[in-house]
């Protein structure tokens, strides 16, 4: 066995510093993508895209700022979400729930800087208020995300990927 997590063993720190083949970004957990196709912890926000329940051509862009927990939800055309009545809408709740599946409650709480008492859900511990934020940036990041699926595959070797080993679930 080898242990390369920085805190996992007495010499973990030096191992982390002197290894080349590491998985620095922990792999995310698989989840159903139909309702919330895109979630990310980026640019100081938990942000993502939630599919509309009624119109398959429409999506909502939802975000929660780390630290303040101020939130926003609007359509990708910047129309405010009708569900924001002084508290987070169902899209924001779905966003947090799926983020917890994808990244784990720990990573989400740490990123948002939220104290979650034992047994509570991160979504219930956010104290922010509605604060308009432009949806365009997040939506274009989602489109960029989708565009990866259209990049053609290649059968030429990519030696650089030796730095990025696949890892298994510990079992």
């Amino acid at each position: 066995m080898t242990d390369r997590s920085p805190n996992g063993s007495p010499n973990g720190a030096s191992a982390w510093a002197r290894h080349s083949r590491l998985r620095v970004v922990p792999p995310v957990q698989p989840r159903k993508l139909a309702k919330v196709p895109f979630v990310e912890l980026a640019d100081g926000r938990l942000q993502g895209v939630v599919s509309s329940g009624s119109d398959i051509g429409r999506v909502y862009v939802s975000s929660i700022a780390a630290g303040t927990h101020n939130y926003n939800c609007s359509t990708n055309n910047n129309r405010p979400c009708g569900g924001l009545y002084g508290s987070p809408c169902k899209h924001l709740r779905a966003l947090v729930a799926e983020a917890v599946v994808q990244y784990g409650a720990d990573r989400v709480s740490r990123y948002l800087r939220v104290e979650v008492p034992e047994g509570a859900e991160p979504a219930d511990c956010l104290g922010g208020v509605h604060e308009p934020a432009p949806a365009a940036v997040v939506f274009s990041r989602f489109l960029r995300h989708l565009a990866y699926l259209e990049v053609p595959d290649t059968t030429l070797p990519i030696p650089e990927l030796h730095w990025f080993p696949a890892t298994g679930t510990v079992g």
Partner: peptide, 15 residues
């Protein structure tokens, strides 16, 4: 010999 196929993906496609 080695033979490779590399495919673009997103982080939610795993396992």
């Amino acid at each position: 010999v080695r033979t490779s196929v590399t495919v673009a993906k997103v982080d939610t496609i795993v396992g």
